[in-house]
Design a binder for these strands. Structure first.
Lengths: 130, 130
DNA sequence: CCCCATCTACGAACCTTTTCGTTGACGATA
DNA sequence: TATCGTCAACGAAAAGGTTCGTAGATGGGG
């Protein structure tokens, strides 16, 4: 189904599959199913069905030149992550990514090393320094 | 329905209602419906139904002592936000809130003022300083 | 050339989410 | 007290998400 509506938010199951595709690169249904089986317990045809749905939604593209079709995520992991974050910011943080970030940081569980990494990123991003 | 399963992730529509409850405090169906009508276009009974579902799920509590029942969010906005962030971190960031934060910041669109606020928070949180 | 393993496609079943119409209770008022 | 507006409850319809059984195509090995 060709359609130029912006790519929709992936569902939970779809996201699980996308993560495998990002990790492994282009993969067959079998590949995805095997990788997924490590974590969850999903039937082969279930995975196939999802990939077909994801084709329709434009979440993945595929190469049909071989008998076993090869699927690939259409958008990069980063792009999808940003999309999901923007979406969550809209739905739960009044559209403010900054408030989202602050809440995420307040949730503690962030190591000192990570905090410093974030600090470095902050410096790279915007002006000021103490 | 009494049940002690941990509160489930609110759906989009449920979250929209929770936002109103957080903003207004305890409210009747009518209150919520009016506030919601400003943004979206939802019927009165639709809102009522959602609030009833949310009672079942444990997302809200209500006071039935008056004819018009008064609903209130069961969990604070912050707690819910943290929950949603933890969930998103799990589903899309390999369980790492730090990676989530970095991606959110890289998405730019954050003003210098906000960046400084975040920097301040960072200082308050963990050691180091340049 | 036939059979088996592997693959895609299709569609059904079931659950959740979203939406609202209808019904019946209740209280104020004319 | 008969009527009207407001309210909660219920149920059902429609759409979306999840899961898988079955059927049919295809290519390789005996």
């Amino acid at each position: 189904m060709k359609d130029n509506t912006p790519t929709p938010r992936p569902t939970d199951a779809e996201l699980a599959i996308l993560r495998i595709l990002w990790q492994r690169g282009p993969s067959t249904v079998r590949d995805v199913h095997e990788a997924l089986s490590a974590a969850q317990d999903t039937g082969y045809t279930t995975v196939l069905k999802f990939l077909q749905i994801m084709i329709d939604k434009g979440l993945v593209v595929r190469d049909e030149s071989e008998r076993a079709h090869v699927y690939e995520a259409r958008h990069s992991e980063q792009k999808t992550q940003r999309q999901l974050l923007a979406d969550l910011a809209d739905r739960a943080f009044g559209g403010s990514p900054a408030r989202l970030v602050m809440q995420a940081l307040s949730g503690r569980k962030t190591s000192t090393a990570e905090l410093n990494e974030i600090r470095a990123l902050l410096d790279r991003l915007g002006g000021e320094k103490k």
